[in-house]
């Protein structure tokens, strides 16, 4: 079984934020307003974060759920609403979530987001929501799922075509739109995959890896 992972080459990334918009539309993440943003309630599953790196430079890192192999969030969830699935994706079952926010506090990356209000779209915009992704109600926690629904769809299409699922059949929306090819997605357990090769690069690092969370989002540092 594949172990899905994402490599982001910060040297290639242009900080254009196309991934942010692609994710928003793909996953029915509602729009914010200046007021909700000012209250720290901006809903975005991936965002560009300025991070101070060793040496004093600031890197602009696309930050989303790091899909940890040892996720602190799942340990604290009292209802098993969030769990590590067999393919390494930290899944979120919204009907189980009771909104206790233990997981948002446990996550060191601050990428689990609590729905303070019911998601709303103007009437004219309701049809643009992706029918493959359920709308999260108020009071639950949500986050990046590596566009898990795309895996479901890719699997079905492969089955319909009578062939096995190939790793390249499954591409999250952020990876698909990245203009500079900074994002590479695939099976980390396949030693021949591009993603595994890049993850083994000397430039590779995992964010806050000293915490022992073993993220499957791997960054490649900038510079020589």
């Amino acid at each position: 079984m594949a172990r899905w992972g994402l490599v982001i080459d910060l040297d290639r990334c242009t900080a254009c934020q196309a991934c942010v918009v692609a994710c928003k539309h793909e996953n029915n993440v509602p729009f914010s307003t200046p007021e909700t943003s000012a209250r720290g309630r901006l809903m975005t599953w991936i965002q560009l974060v300025g991070v101070e790196m060793p040496g004093g430079t600031t890197a602009m890192m696309p930050m989303m759920c790091q899909q940890c192999d040892r996720p602190p969030c799942t340990d604290v969830c009292p209802t098993s609403a969030t769990y590590l699935n067999p393919e390494g994706i930290v899944a979120q079952i919204y009907p189980r979530c009771i909104g206790c926010r233990y997981c948002t506090n446990a996550c060191p990356y601050a990428v689990k987001l609590f729905n303070w209000t019911a998601p709303e779209w103007p009437e004219s915009m309701a049809p643009m929501r992706n029918p493959d992704v359920s709308i999260r109600p108020m009071g639950v926690v949500e986050k990046c799922t590596f566009c898990h629904h795309r895996l479901q769809q890719a699997r079905e299409e492969a089955r319909a075509a009578g062939r096995a699922l190939a790793a390249e059949d499954y591409v999250p929306a952020c990876v698909q739109t990245c203009p500079s090819d900074a994002m590479v997605f695939g099976d980390l357990d396949d030693p021949h995959s591009q993603v595994a090769g890049l993850a083994a690069s000397t430039r590779a690092f995992r964010w806050m890896e000293d915490l022992g969370t073993r993220p499957k989002v791997v960054y490649l540092r900038e510079g020589e």
Binding site: C16, H25, M128, P131
Partner: peptide
């Protein structure tokens, strides 16, 4: 009903990618 925009892989200069404005 349109639900998402993606880059056209055949476009010789876009090659299947879109920027933030294009996505939006």
């Amino acid at each position: 009903v349109p639900v998402k925009l993606e880059g056209n892989p055949l476009c010789p200069f876009g090659r299947g990618r879109l920027c933030a404005k294009g996505q939006a």
